[in-house]
Amino acid sequence: MSMPTMKLLRTAALGGVLALGLSACGETSQVPVYKDGKYSGKADTRPWESAEFKGDKAAWEAALKNRARGQNEYNRGD
């Protein structure tokens, strides 16, 4: 093999190694992107869909509000 061919091969090999080495710099991030989780369990019914309120949300809200206000002892006796 002649000298110019050897030099050409050596340059090509060196270029190949350099390209291989640099390819690592282009590696994409492997950190996972956080995604807001979606509930994966069973569906639940709403409290006003119970046997007591039969889907009447307003009645349920009124009952709960009345109960909550009952915690204020300053209102008692009114």
Partner: peptide, 22 residues
């Protein structure tokens, strides 16, 4: 809650220190 009642801990609180609800 489905019975239209608040948590029992708050409803039982004797000094009404613990409040629950909206």
């Amino acid at each position: 809650l489905a019975q239209g009642k608040l948590p029992l801990c708050a409803e039982m609180c004797s000094t009404k220190a613990l409040l629950a609800g909206d």
